[in-house]
Computed example of a mutant assay.
Amino acid sequence: MEKIYVLGNLNVDIIMGYFEKWPSIGSEVTGNFFDFRYAGAAGNSALALKRLGFDVYVISSVGSDEFGERFFLNFRKEGINLSKCEKSKKRTGMSVGISFENKERTFFTFLGALEDMNETFINKEVKEIENSWIVICGFNLIPFFQDKRFLETVKMMKEHKNKILFDPGWPPEGWNDGKRQQAVQLAALSDWFVPNLSEAQAISQKSSLKESIEYFKKQGIQNCVIKLGKNGSQGFTLDRHTLSAVFQVGEIKDTVGAGDLFNAALIKGITLGWDDKMAIKFATFYASLCITKMGKERYLSFEEAYASFLKEV
Rank of each mutant, 00 (worst) to 15 (best):
N74G: 05
D191N: 09
I221D: 00
F247Q: 03
F33N: 11
L243F: 06
K253C: 09
F216P: 00
Y57I: 01
E69I: 11
T106D: 08
M156L: 15
T153L: 04
E115P: 03
K127G: 04
G31M: 06
S24R: 05
K277N: 02
E303P: 03
L52Y: 09
K230A: 06
M294V: 04
I80F: 13
A41V: 14
E2H: 14
F262H: 07
N231E: 10
I291K: 09
L73Q: 11
I252H: 00
L186D: 02
F285M: 11
F72I: 13
D116S: 12
T237L: 05
W274M: 10
H160A: 08
D239G: 10
F107G: 07
P23V: 11
N102F: 00
I59A: 01
L310S: 12
G43K: 04
S24D: 03
S212A: 07
N44Y: 14
K127C: 12
L10W: 03
Y306S: 09
V194I: 13
S301L: 05
A39M: 12
T284C: 08
N9M: 06
I142L: 13
T237R: 03
W274Q: 07
T106Q: 10
K50D: 15
Q219H: 03
E130P: 00
V58R: 00
I221C: 03
E211K: 07
R76L: 14
W170F: 11
